[in-house]
Amino acid sequence: MSATTDPRIDGYARALFEVARADGTLDEVEDELFRFARSYESSEALRTTLSDEDIPAAKRQAIVEDLLGETATPTTVQLLSMVIGSGRASDLVAIADALVQRASAAKQLEVAQVRSAVELTPDQQDRLRAAIANATGKQVNLKIVVDPSVLGGLVATVGDIVIDGSVRATVEQLKARL
């Protein structure tokens, strides 16, 4: 996850950030948008549908609302609908990442993206956050992505630092040796 230099994406991220902060739901919105961005990133069907200009914007917005339903805050749903409706679906991932960066920076935190095969418990998240802070010397905003391709363990990325404790890495080393 890297900071973007596209002014339009920054503009959207700043707008979303300001709206969420004003609404007092910045943490939730940031987390939900991050999760939605990861889902969007991994699902080709979702990407194709939401970025298809032939489908009316209202219909695409309805799809987003149906997908998120009551699992996300209304602010997140509205902001996502706004991004989709303005035809920026292809920039959704970049906008969400920029928003996470901006929110983390506002809290003096570094974004730590963690890919794990299974969901981490809150306790594990806390201990992992502390462990990463200890290892990197940076306070981090942990963003967990459930990624079955990791197979087991987890991969944490903090800026340029990659901490790879995944079974996938071990398997790949074994395959390379084969």
């Binding site: 594990q124 201990r127 992992l128 462990a131 290892a135 087991g152 987890l154 404790g165």
Partner: peptide, 24 residues
């Protein structure tokens, strides 16, 4: 167990890690 192992290893590491591809 794997996650706990990684957390333990990362936690055991002292000082800021640097560069790409650091492996726990």
């Amino acid at each position: 167990q794997l996650i706990e192992d990684v957390i333990a290893r990362v936690g055991a590491a002292t000082g800021p890690a640097s560069g790409n591809g650091a492996s726990a």
